[in-house]
Amino acid sequence: MKKIDWEKMSKPIILVGAIIILSVLRPQSFLTANNFANVLWSVSVIGIMTCGTVFVFLAGGIDLSIGTLAGLSAITVVEIIDKMGATNASVIIGIIAALCVGAFAGMVHGLIITRFNIPAFLVTFAAQSVYLGLSMVITNNRIVSAREPALFTSIGSMKILGFPLPIYLMIIIALISWFSLSRTTFGRDIYAVGGNPEASEISGVHVSKDIVLCYVFSGLTAAIGGIVLASMTQQGMASTGSGYETQVITAAVIGGVSLLGGVGTVPGCIYGVVIMGLINNGLNLMSVPSTQSGLVQGVVIIIAVAFDALQHQDQSRKKVKRISEQIKGTASS
């Protein structure tokens, strides 16, 4: 019989454990298809953004600009709808423009980071302010409403088989990311670049080009996140998306992504995103007062991450023990 790989199983165990605990605590409301749709809907934007930004993390970088870039993209689409009139054509033009904004911003980040050799933290941190500032200037710090047309408002809330559209978008983007990272040369190169950029360069990987592409993808998913957010709330404003970068980083790290690069997977990210959604949903369903929810949220995240880390350590300890026994065995023979 094939031995169970506990290292791989720890995340599903935590997920199932969390679901069982919440089902027992809130049997009436938690374990329903509608509630699962709500959980996934509430984290879909973070999920979409995490699936793109994970490329940057894996390549050893960081993207702090995604929150305000999502805001700028949201404003781009709602401004175009507002100025051109609430027609389907303006929605399509708005979406294309917002995606271009995201991809272009990502390309600029990547080029500055690789050409000028400036730390990604600094570049994207500065870019964060630039996008917030741009959004403020464009909107004159006002809320731009987009309550129609239906083509736009349905992006964030239209239901297919009982599940809102953003959940499908998250799944599609997760599949694209997973495929690119695990089934293509580009994906393997990203892991190599994140693990050891010098060695990758020597072995013929186009490090700079790959890094730029990572930021383009990150910018693109930030833009998609922004469009979905604008549609969900039927508005765009300068502060739309602000702070999402922290949630994306948290989800990725919970999901086992190393901020040092080279380690992490897309399923891991989705796990991190869903765990965050479950914790939030659980707190809401159990009516935890807002004064305590931050505390409970933090403690639950630490417990989940510690449990996961413990499983990994256990496995590595066993591995070390096995190898040292093998060495001893060879030495004695």
């Binding site: 409301s29 509630n35 709500n38 809401n284």
Partner: peptide, 13 residues
Amino acid sequence: EQAITVMNSFLQN
């Protein structure tokens, strides 16, 4: 946006 999530849980509960 957060109010959407909170309201969803109210409707659920």
